[in-house]
Computed example of a mutant assay.
Amino acid sequence: MHTMWKGSISFGLVNIPVKMFAATEDKDIKFRYLHKKCKTPIKYVRTCSTCDREVGWDEIIKGYEYEPGRFIIIEEEELEAIAPETKRTVEILDFVNLEEIDPIYFDKSYYLSPNETGDKAYALLRKAMNETGKIGVAKITIRNRESLAVIRTLENCIVLETIYYPDEVRGIAQLPALPDETKLNENELKMAIQLIENLAAPFDPTRYKDKYRESLQELIQKKMEGEEIVAAPVAPRRNVIDLMDALQASLEATKPAKKKKAGGPRRKAAKEKATI
């Protein structure tokens, strides 16, 4: 893995030298745009619509559009003057319970490993967090941007997760037409609960695949090998308008899964799903 940051974790008077690595990677398949006629990749150039010519990077400045067509010019020196202090420190501010933070706040994940002589202090912090069940709320500066983060453990590793600031999470009150205390049919509720129980299983991330990406990789491989591409038939879907009928059909489709849960891998749900 490529080391993307070096610094230390600081809590109290303890400093733990660490190295940071990206914990996730984007596996999306990227396409280039080509000219249909000659298959040449399309270039994107920076042009000025007023001067009607291409503009070099040395001619570009930054501006904030405070209303359509009106800008405040921001100089690089002004940005540097207010930039956060580039401390190479993950400063833990508080320790909290993980369940207190809603997943909507989580952004990106990074692995932290001990650097140089930090093995013992690293192991100490890891053990202390595991014993107390607490995670650390911290601040870190990455690429001149101060981010809020949490420090937690994953197996034998300390993980840093950047999280959004409260004002970056949109309020639920902004959403239109959310139902309040809707009167529900008791039988429908019981069936919905039963359906959830039928589909309940321990979380196993290896069970979930990006089927579109796999199909796209297979398509690319076949085209590279010159194979003929044949579209797969689309499975028919049955629309069920009545909520009770949809719940009943779903329960019937998931019954075999409940019986197989204790044994081998769970059987796939019936191909024909009820939709509302």
Rank of each mutant, 00 (worst) to 15 (best):
G171Q: 08
I135F: 04
E131R: 08
D180Y: 13
V150T: 13
L175Y: 08
P179D: 10
N130S: 10
E168A: 10
I172N: 01
Y110T: 02
E146T: 12
T182M: 09
V159K: 02
M191H: 09
L195P: 07
A138Q: 06
G171K: 07
T182V: 15
K190L: 14
T162S: 13
L154P: 01
F106V: 00
G118F: 07
C157I: 15
T182G: 04
K190G: 11
A173T: 15
G133S: 05
D107F: 10
T162G: 11
S113C: 06
K108C: 03
D102G: 11
R170Y: 07
K127D: 11
A123S: 07
L124S: 08
M191E: 03
D107R: 05
L148N: 04
G136L: 05
T141V: 15
K190Y: 13
Y122S: 03
D102H: 14
I151P: 02
Y110R: 02
A128D: 09
M191D: 08
Y164K: 03
G136T: 09
R152K: 14
R152P: 00
E168R: 06
N156H: 13
V169W: 03
L178G: 02
N156C: 04
Y111K: 00
E155S: 13
K134D: 05
R143N: 06
I172K: 14
E168V: 04
L189S: 04
K190C: 07
E155H: 14
R145F: 01
E188C: 08
L160A: 04
N187Q: 13
A173G: 12
I101L: 12
P179M: 08
L195T: 08
A123G: 02
K127H: 14
R170N: 09
Y165H: 13
I158Y: 05
N198T: 00
R145P: 01
D167E: 15
D180F: 13
L189Y: 14
L199C: 06
K134R: 15
Q194T: 11
I140C: 01
N187A: 12
P176Y: 01
G118W: 04
I142L: 01
V150S: 03
A149N: 05
R143D: 00
Y165E: 10
A121H: 10
A192I: 07
P176Q: 06
N130H: 09
N144L: 13
S147V: 00
K139S: 15
Q194C: 04
K134N: 13
I163Q: 05
K127Y: 12
N130V: 02
I172T: 09
I135R: 03
I163D: 04
R170S: 14
L175I: 12
R126P: 03
D107M: 08
T132M: 07
E100K: 00
P176C: 05
K120M: 14
K183R: 09
L148M: 14
S147M: 13
L184Q: 12
Q194P: 05
P166S: 13
I163G: 04
E161K: 04
N130D: 14
R170W: 06
E161L: 00
A192C: 10
A173F: 15
G171F: 02
N115G: 02
E131Y: 08
K120N: 09
